[in-house]
Each structure stands twice: as C-alpha cells, then as structure tokens.
Amino acid sequence: MGIIKVENIRVFANHGCLDEETKIGSDYRIDLEIKANLKTSAMSDKLVDTVDYVFLNKVVREEMATPSKLLETVAKRILNRIFSEDQMVKKATISVSKINPPIGGDVEMVTIKMTQKRKKCSK
C-alpha cells in the first residue's frame, strides 16, 4: 500500500448558503490523500499501474465547478467520482477549505474533512 497526496489545489468556485456567496464566489483549497497499491507501478514505471494525479485534479476541478450550499456535498461528490472512476483507489481523504469565509470575523479558512473506503466485495 502507498499514499498519493495532491495538496493545495486552488480553485475559485461559487459554493455557500448565502446568495452573495453563490453570486460572487470565493477561493477554495482542496487537499487529497489517496491510498492505493503502488507496488506494481513502482516496478513497471507505467502510468496505467497507478492512480494518476492529473485525473484527481481534473475530478476536483469539475466537481468544484458545480455550486453546492455545503462543502460536505461537494466533497462527497468528489469522493464518489474518484471511487467510481478509479478502481485502484482503496481509501481517500479529502479536505475542502473555504478561504476567508464570510462569517463575521477574521478567519483564514474553514475546512471540512471526509474519508471514504472502498467496500470489499463479498462472495
């Protein structure tokens, strides 16, 4: 087993419960940690044998482009896509942070963090 991290993906998006948030938009930071078997790719030196971080970045950017009221919702969509489109992913943790949230105080960011594991098939 190994870990692939894609950290500090910066995206401008329109998420939030307030009308102003969805109209004006905000800056976001997304961090991913993916657990997968990296032994094969370490030996083969072939992209097809690993989890492609270009793919991970693409999924994040596409799902962040769809407005949601809650960060939890967009994070779950990202996790669902990763698991449905890449069978090598065994576990994934995502953090979605809203930079300078409009919460009436001097706050650098708010972050939600979610983890999902691949369900084992029983025979």
Rank of each mutant, 00 (worst) to 15 (best):
Leu71Pro: 01
Gly2His: 06
Gly16Asn: 05
Leu56Cys: 08
Pro102Ser: 01
Met109Asn: 10
Ile103Val: 07
Thr93Ser: 01
Lys91Ala: 09
Lys35Gln: 07
Ala92Glu: 02
Thr66Val: 02
Leu70Ile: 15
Lys113Cys: 13
Lys90Gln: 11
Lys123Ile: 12
Ala65Asp: 14
Cys121Pro: 12
Ser122Cys: 11
Val6Ile: 10
Tyr28Ala: 04
Leu47Thr: 02
Met43Pro: 00
Glu33Trp: 15
Lys39Met: 13
Pro102Lys: 06
Asn37Thr: 01
Pro101Leu: 02
Ile3Gln: 06
Asn100Pro: 06
Gln87Ser: 09
Lys113Ala: 12
Ile4Tyr: 08
Leu71Asn: 07
Ile9Ser: 13
Pro101Ile: 04
Cys17Arg: 02
His15Asp: 06
Asn80Pro: 02
Met88Asp: 12
Thr73Met: 12
Val74Ser: 08
Ile24Leu: 04
Pro101Val: 05
Val59Cys: 13
Arg81Leu: 12
Asn100Trp: 11
Gly16Pro: 08
Val48His: 10
Asp27Arg: 06
Asp49Lys: 07
Ile112Gly: 10
Asn100Ser: 08
Val74Asp: 00
Ala75Cys: 08
Ile82Arg: 05
Lys91Met: 09
Val89Ile: 13
Arg118Asn: 04
Lys123Trp: 05
Lys58Glu: 09
Lys5His: 08
Arg10Asn: 03
Thr22Asp: 15
Met1Ser: 03
Lys58Thr: 08
Ile103Glu: 02
Ile34Arg: 06
Gly105Asn: 04
Asp106Ile: 02
Lys35His: 14
Asp52Met: 11
Val6Ser: 04
Lys123Asn: 11
Ser41Gly: 15
